[in-house]
Design a binder for these strands. Structure first.
Lengths: 224, 224
DNA sequence: AACTGTGAAAACTTTCACAGCC
DNA sequence: GGCTGTGAAAGTTTTCACAGTT
């Protein structure tokens, strides 16, 4: 059992490159070198080239990469041509923040339905999305063809919600609950966990980060 | 230049183990095996043992790890004995959600001050924390001895805020803005980026995640 | 018998360095 | 001259497998 699977970090970097490329485009730059991208992404030029070469040859030797073209290529790789329809479960503090976060839609993730269990929220409209009772979750997912579910409930409720999402046919779940969700393995799950990130900071602040800092970024690299 | 630096993923797993250990403790389990932890963390038993052995020998052969003791050990490793004082910059949707998120404090991260530029928010109290004008940021950090800054501002403002945080002496920054922050390299930075996570999901949903799924978790492993 | 701690092997990721092209 | 694409080398992380301990 060999490759064919691209590492998580490589995918993450592609997202990053994509964002940077859009900035370049907005500034009407239309050719970038791996070095340009690397400097801004905090990677090395060789890594940028390698990441891209995992999927094909998109650059022009001696010149660089065509910004507009590379944007399309990476969008294709990441599955971002077109919109994903997203259903939100839990309209508490995080859920509300997500509903108000225009970037999601601008980046191709449209929240097409929201549900909650709290009587006081059900029936209201939050940032233009009507909140339905949890019982409607399955129906809403099927009717609106949602493919991604966001879990923004208290941790105790998360597993039950994930099971329902899976049963109703979503293929991906983004969870803000600090618990490991068990779902059929063809469903992709990711977690966002602020406490975990803060603990990561804490570790580096307490222990490392003095010496041994692998400084990246600006410095000249690649054929130094 | 060799080791001595523990990988990010290992640190992340330690956080995870810590959380699981606390659950075990709440259920009055006082001895766990690497296998128990692994099953719940989505790792392998060997990995749990290796992660811990990077820092010392904390288990009892033939029995397992003492829950209470291991909690203390990991808290020590992660720098979580005692509280970190945190300053929040940006009391918009995300900032407000963070202020209302009691888990932060329970996990040792106390928000001791919050600032914003919006006149309508300045002077109000949000979940018990008074919001001050941005101009006060430096003074507040010094007076309240904040060591971590959270950046929850629009992306355009993030770099400027980060520079101020650094100048005022924080040693760690957690940023929700989708930009690479440049700060003196002794300051540790982490990003939380929901769009990036969704794009990661998108990639797996579009491309992989069919075959090649390295299923983990439940399955028997280690000395199989 | 159950389980840890750990060297050694395997797998994977990053960096190097250079041939090839514009 | 400047820059990509890529094998090969170096480095890192994960897994294996077993000696050692209770």
């Amino acid at each position: 059992m060999t490759q064919s699977k691209i590492s998580d970090s490589a995918v993450r970097r592609l997202s990053l490159y994509l964002r940077l490329l859009r900035e370049f485009r907005a500034r009407e730059v239309d050719l970038v070198s791996s070095r340009d991208l690397a400097a801004r992404a905090g990677a090395t030029a060789a890594q940028v080239r390698k990441d891209l070469s995992l999927f094909g040859s998109f650059g022009k030797r001696g010149r660089g990469y065509a910004v507009a073209e590379l944007i399309e290529v990476i969008e294709g790789i990441l599955g971002l041509r077109g919109h994903w329809r997203v259903v939100l479960v839990g309209v508490g503090k995080i859920g509300t923040a997500l509903l108000g976060f225009r970037d999601l839609e601008r980046r191709g993730f449209e929240i097409v339905a929201a549900v909650d269990t709290d009587e006081r929220v059900i029936g209201t409209e939050v940032f233009g999305v009507r909140v339905s009772p949890l019982a409607e979750l399955g129906r809403l997912i099927r009717e609106r063809e949602a493919e991604i579910g966001i879990v923004a409930t208290p941790p105790e409720a998360a597993q039950e919600v994930a099971t329902k999402l899976a049963a109703a046919g979503v293929r991906g779940i983004l969870s803000f609950a600090p618990v490991k969700l068990s779902v059929p393995k063809e469903i992709c799950v990711r977690n966002v966990d602020v406490v975990l990130e803060l603990e990561g900071l804490s570790y580096r602040m307490a222990a490392g980060w003095r010496e041994g800092t692998r400084d990246r970024g600006e410095g000249a690299r690649d054929r130094a």
